[in-house]
């Protein structure tokens, strides 16, 4: 019997130890200063290269940067909430609203720019999609929000919204004829158009400023590490502005810093076109967003089902901390960048 209670006590201790609220880790960060742990819910790829360049530049300024790669965005969110990472990338609106998570967004990295690719012979325009199946990423995703906004703007109603996760999977399904109209990202739009020229075309999408990817941090860590946040934002803004001015900047920096050295040749070929088209399409935010972007996000993520509150009733300060981005922009303006 004594053994049984010892086992129970050990189990309870283990659960408590595993499920700590991470405050201990946050304190560690406070003491260390000058270091940042970034949770990335994505694999290293052409799309994440710009961020890696910014992180290398942060390192050059004397701040330790640790990259924590996780299987998906939700895990990255949880890592930041628990204090196992300091900042994360994604769009944690639902997490902040639904659970009062101690997170604040401080910069928009990428605007939501979607490319709807459809079989040209079957769906020459949006009206021909009325009552038809439209394929998006998943329920509650930004791509589903786009579908809902298109329905409102075009006065149509899709027969069925079908869910297929992963732009590359949807691109393959499109080429194999499993789906006829779907939402793709830039690399996969280029891939589909190149693989089957003349079969597919793009349908126009609404002009939006809403965020596809933002950077957010643990509030406790942000408060205690304002200088580190400032350095990170300055470098992000510098890199983002440089690559819009000259998309070849990314390729040059990659070679100079030795980043993604094992990138396969076929992906290397996609690098420059991706940043050229991204710059042209306004993908890369030049000023971290600001209040107008936040309001667009509220509407967009409400439409996606991620935010349950009415957009006009949501408070910016409950989700964003706009101060650091403004300070970083002021600092860059002062330094003439």
């Amino acid at each position: 019997m004594t053994r049984f209670w010892a086992l129970v006590a050990a189990l309870m201790l283990a659960v408590t130890a595993c499920g700590g609220d991470g405050s201990g880790d946050a304190e560690e960060g406070e003491e260390g200063g000058g270091s940042i742990r970034v949770a990335l819910g994505d694999i290293e790829s052409v799309e994440t290269l710009a961020l890696f360049i910014a992180m290398e530049r942060v390192r050059e300024r004397g701040t330790d940067v640790e990259l924590i790669e996780l299987a998906d965005e939700d895990l990255a969110n949880q890592a930041v909430v628990s204090g196992q990472a300091d900042v994360g990338l994604g769009a944690p609106y639902a997490l902040i609203e639904g659970s009062d998570a101690p997170l604040r967004i401080f910069c928009q990295l990428q605007a939501a720019r979607f490319f709807v690719v459809a079989d040209e012979s079957e769906y020459p325009d949006w009206q021909s999609m009325d009552g038809e199946t439209f394929t998006v990423h998943s329920r509650g995703s930004t791509t589903e929000a786009l579908a809902r906004i298109v329905e409102q703007e075009e006065g149509i109603e899709f027969g069925k919204i079908s869910y297929v996760e992963g732009s590359e999977v949807r691109a393959t399904a499109l080429l194999r004829g499993n789906v006829k109209a779907t939402v793709l990202d830039i690399p996969n739009r280029n891939f589909v158009m190149a693989e089957s020229p003349g079969t597919f075309h793009e349908l126009p999408t609404p002009d939006m400023k809403a965020s596809d990817e933002v950077i957010f941090g643990n509030t406790e860590w942000m408060e205690a590490n304002q200088e580190t946040v400032q350095i990170l934002l300055e470098e992000i803004l510098t890199v983002w502005r440089s690559m819009v001015d000259d998309p070849a900047f990314v390729q040059e920096q990659r070679e100079e810093l030795g980043l993604l050295s094992d990138l396969p040749a076929e992906l290397e070929e996609q690098l420059l076109p991706y940043y050229e088209q991204g710059a042209e399409e306004g993908l890369f935010t030049q000023d971290c967003g600001g209040e107008a972007v936040v309001q667009d996000d509220f509407v967009f993520y409400h439409e996606a089902g991620q935010l349950s509150g009415e957009p006009e009733e949501l408070q910016v300060e409950d989700f964003w901390d706009l101060g650091p981005a403004q300070e970083a922009q002021d600092a860059l303006a002062e330094s003439g960048n």
Binding site: D74, A94, L95, E97, G98, S99, A101, S138, R139, G140, S141, S162, Y163, V164, E165, G305, Q306
Partner: peptide
């Protein structure tokens, strides 16, 4: 892991909207 439908979709969806 393939397409989010049925009970797998419920897990994915409620996780994405933080309805734990």
């Amino acid at each position: 892991l393939i397409t989010p439908t049925g009970v797998g979709d419920l897990i994915t969806f409620y996780r994405s909207v933080a309805d734990y």
